[in-house]
Write a protein that binds this DNA or RNA. Sequence first.
DNA 1: GTTTTTGCTGGGCAACCTGCACAGTGGACG
DNA 2: CGTCCACTGTGCAGGTTGCCCAGCAAAAAC
Lengths: 155, 155
Amino acid sequence: MAIDRLDGRLIELLAEEPRIGVLEASRRLGVARGTVQARLDRLLSQGVIRGFGPDVDPAALGYPVTAFATLEIKQGEGPDVRSHLAGVPEVLELHTITGHGDMLCRLVARSNADLQRVIDKVVGIEGIVRASTAIVMEDAVPLRIIPLVRQAAGG
Amino acid sequence: MAIDRLDGRLIELLAEEPRIGVLEASRRLGVARGTVQARLDRLLSQGVIRGFGPDVDPAALGYPVTAFATLEIKQGEGPDVRSHLAGVPEVLELHTITGHGDMLCRLVARSNADLQRVIDKVVGIEGIVRASTAIVMEDAVPLRIIPLVRQAAGG
DNA sequence: GTTTTTGCTGGGCAACCTGCACAGTGGACG
DNA sequence: CGTCCACTGTGCAGGTTGCCCAGCAAAAAC
């Protein structure tokens, strides 16, 4: 189930140079091509690697402002709120969290001013009692996974 | 600067079937191969697409618990806290946010019990005055970008 | 109105990679 | 000691990539 050192190195390699092929990867790792192929297949089928989707930068799309909003939901309105927010493109992710039956969501907007529009759209449904927003000023640590992979691989 | 409809469709296609090649993509989109190649190069060099890194699932790595922690930082200790947290593999991302000179970070752990260990590690530095943690129960909307791409592409 | 630029098409070519298969080897395990 | 399993090294056919070019049409510039 867990990944070993070779898996870890393979994932790191793919993270650094995603457009690398199986053959080149096998050369870099110093193992046979078939081995890399087998490892990759296993990682993929086990779900460790979900895929190789393009990593799109919202800022480059014209949405440089990121914010996190904590939402207080009225009892029983969870499902409605969820599907409402799923329909808002600026909502990049949404989680239900422990606390007061609340939700946390990540938003993007074209500007600080535009964020108001997005928030209005987000809270534009009955079920949301209160929303508190925090604007991201700096990505001190951008979303990453490699350090965790390294730890999981026993490196 | 902005992306057009073809760019949007290309990104969507790549998101759905990441292992697709330029040639196959051109067939699906009904344009010449060179066009897809040129569009891809442009999206990549403009930074709209950062790359095609493997999408690793922390849960499959043995870290099924996700949490968000809001940290209250002592004046002037920001940089220290930042580099401290950058060294913790279980910290998947860290942002400085508006509010009380605070930070918000995403954590993962092996279990709810293990989360305590992670939090202890996180707050194990002088500069953090207070930490409040919210455990994620459900990913109502997993991290996504396609709806935003579609909107940006004018779809 | 005319010239230039820009982006797309459709084609060609050599080099490379992929998917698949197979036999041989060495370690782990019962 | 025999079996199972993962890895190695090799081979092959077919598909793909990176690169180039000429022709075109629409948009932009003059």
